[in-house]
Amino acid sequence: MKHHPYKTDLPVMLPFKPVETESFGSTIKLWYVVPILALILGTSAIAQSGSDIRLGALQTLMRWMPLLLQGFIFNVLISVMAMAIGTGLGAALGIGQLSLNRFVRSSSWLLTQFFRNAPWLVLLFFAMFLLPFEVNVFGIIIPLPDWVKATIGLALPVMANVSEIIRGAVLSLPSGQWEAAESLAYSRRQTLWLIILPQCLKRMLPPWMNLYAILTMATVLASIVGVSEVMTLTGEALAAEGGRPDLLAPFYAFVLLIFFVYCYPIARLTVRLERKFSVIN
């Protein structure tokens, strides 16, 4: 076989694949939890040697584990709800960004940019303080407890990011798709809903999943505004044990571990899908 020299007068760089979300995965394996586990066991073992009257750090952690896991389930619940709300609003905003109406388009864009560039924690405070504690919908009073407000606060940045994901995916489609649909006398609305968006769904899935993982990790922010999720419970558990310093490392490491076990598989799946879709395209 003859190999052809690549002919050019310009110095070249190879094609660059930007890292936006995950792009790493050929060597990733679940044994990465081992270091965290080692951390928990190691730190509790060290702590153990010093204290024989009290319950060992590991046993103490075991005792609190069911409660902490319950707390984590609450985090998952918040993340699922915030994702649902954020995706719904974000989809509307994203499609708004593609509108032919200039006013709709630019105000959607502005709203997206505004919420995308704000820190998650600030948006969380924003929702906590500015939402009323109850809303009156046609005479029915719906109370808004803190955790609902926190969920809405977390949904705001999700909304902005979903909006951007949609816009990015639609713009990345070759314009030939629009033209082909136009030549078939589809209306713009039909083109968008029947031709463009279905094709984009696949492209949007990996960044959307990545966003979900980020959101899940952001749910601990709710502890700062007093929602009883896993981080808050951890703090309470530590206080209930009388602030023993030997418990700090194992307890915090345990929280890290729960999130890792939950988020890491999502990250892996994201990488896999990304690979698969990039091969197809």
């Binding site: 790493f24 060597t27 990733i28 990465y32 270091p35 965290i36 730190t43 993982a213 990790m217 952001a218 749910t219 601990v220 922010l221 502890s223 700062i224 981080m231 310093p245 700090l248 490392a249 915090y252 490491a253 929280v255 890290l256 999130f259 890792f260 988020c263 890491y264 990250a267």
Partner: peptide, 26 residues
């Protein structure tokens, strides 16, 4: 290096901060 990347990417930064500040801090 890979373990470092995966651990820090897939756990909440707030908990990392607490871990450093409280657990390592003492």
């Amino acid at each position: 290096v890979n373990v470092y990347i995966q651990l820090f990417r897939n756990t909440p930064p707030l908990v990392q901060l607490y871990f450093f500040y409280f657990a390592v801090g003492i």
